[in-house]
């Protein structure tokens, strides 16, 4: 019984600490662009931020809500506060914590899982921080090369490079479904070339179409499964 009360007071203080550091981190991250802006002699254009938020921001807001609902139970309280502060969830923190959990055989929702996932995520975040700090120090002398004329086309094409890689990753999960929004978007952008200056806004109809198609397919499968 004594262990139960130790655990409960640990959880209680974890929630308090987690909330405090999350709020501080939020303030720091939102404040930083204003401080850097002061150094550069320019402040953020809030109108542009609002417009861009309405297009891309909404997509990432939905994905944040899903991530919160799915990952919080897996990671426990301490682990999830830390994970949402330190990021890189799907590509590192989640598999890392799952790996640690399996290694020691901890079950979701137990005190053991709470401790192990916090240890795992804190360790993982610290390793990233150290490796990136070392990497950045090594990058400083490479600056002239990175900013050379020869490499300029590379940096001008970061976005197509990202979407090429993501296209293979996601299209192969459901190629038949992917062909429809892709074709519609190709036709639209070809016939209305002026849309290319608002590509990020076009994510909304394109994403809505893909989600609608996925929903229709899902419902059909569920009906098929129920009918059997």
């Amino acid at each position: 019984m004594e262990k139960q009360s130790i655990y409960e007071s640990y959880l209680k203080s974890t929630h308090r600490l987690g909330r405090i550091v999350s709020v501080i981190t939020l303030v720091l991250l939102v404040g930083a662009p204003f401080v850097i802006g002061t150094l550069l002699g320019a402040q953020p254009d809030l109108g542009a931020v609002a417009r861009a938020f309405l297009s891309v921001g909404l997509v990432w807001t939905v994905s944040s809500v899903v991530e919160f609902l799915v990952y919080t139970p897996m990671l426990g309280s301490g682990g999830s506060y830390l994970a949402f502060i330190t990021g890189n969830l799907i590509n590192m923190k989640i598999p890392c914590a799952m790996n640690a959990k399996e290694l020691v055989g901890a079950k979701s929702g137990t005190a053991e899982n709470e401790v192990i996932s916090t240890l795992s995520i804190a360790t993982s975040a610290l390793v990233t921080i150290v490796i990136l700090a070392l990497g950045v120090v090594l990058l400083i002398p490479l600056q002239p090369i990175l900013q050379s004329e020869t490499l300029a086309p590379a940096f001008a094409n970061v976005v197509p490079a990202l979407f090429g890689a993501m296209a293979y990753k996601y299209y192969r999960k459901d190629p038949a479904l992917a062909m429809i929004p892709l074709t519609v978007m190709i036709i639209l952008f070809t016939l209305v070339p002026s849309l290319t200056s608002s590509t990020s806004f076009m994510i909304i109809p394109s994403g809505a179409l893909a989600i609608l198609l996925a929903w229709l397919k899902y419902r059909k499968e569920m009906k098929g499964a129920a009918g059997q």
Binding site: F163, V184, G207
Partner: peptide
């Protein structure tokens, strides 16, 4: 989630 990413990628490749 997958469909959302498919939609996002399609918009960019279309552009």
């Amino acid at each position: 989630m997958t469909a959302m990413f498919i939609g996002m990628v399609s918009a960019y490749i279309g552009s």
